[in-house]
């Protein structure tokens, strides 16, 4: 299944975010070898040069590294992965809080709403989301 992209942003930066998400969510484990550029490009149904660019940019963050002859691997530095995960969470929460602000809710009220949502139901949701991601 080809991956989906937002129209208004460069494809390579969206590819970068998607692969980064797969790393921090554990679909690609620390130290795991990534598929080749061609295979990833084919999976996402994008131009291999675009995929190449996304991976090169991702290398700069340190989340993946290139082994001269054998391909690209996910970093074994789990602290780095954890911090990348936290950065994403902060960004997404920022966007969410912005939307809530438009609805007229401040951070305290949002916290209150979060607490009223059944936490067990929420946890189930998370697990099924992750499963869907893996498929």
């Amino acid at each position: 299944m080809p991956w989906n992209f937002d129209p208004g942003r460069p494809i390579y930066s969206q590819l970068l975010e998607m692969i980064r998400l797969q790393i921090v969510s554990g679909r690609y484990a620390p130290g795991e070898k990534l598929p080749s550029v061609r295979d990833l490009a084919s999976e996402a149904a994008v131009n291999p040069n675009t995929m190449q660019r996304a991976l090169t940019e991702l290398e700069r963050t340190g989340l993946i590294y290139a082994q001269r002859t054998s391909g690209r691997y996910v970093t074994e530095d789990s602290a780095l992965i954890a911090s990348a995960k936290r950065t994403i969470a902060r960004e997404k929460t920022g966007v969410f809080l912005q939307e809530m602000k438009q609805l007229g809710y401040g951070p305290e009220q949002v916290t209150e709403i979060i607490n009223t949502i059944d936490s067990s139901e929420n946890a189930d949701q998370d697990v099924s989301d992750l499963d869907a991601e893996k498929k």
């Binding site: 208004g8 460069p10 675009t50 660019r53």
Partner: peptide, 25 residues
């Protein structure tokens, strides 16, 4: 999504020739 570059032809002239991601950016 499979293109590197796009060339826009307008009335027989090239009006834009740019990388797709540069256009999106």
């Amino acid at each position: 999504r499979i293109l590197d570059e796009a060339v826009f032809l307008k009335n027989g002239t090239v009006s834009i020739h740019s990388a797709v991601d540069d256009i999106r950016n």
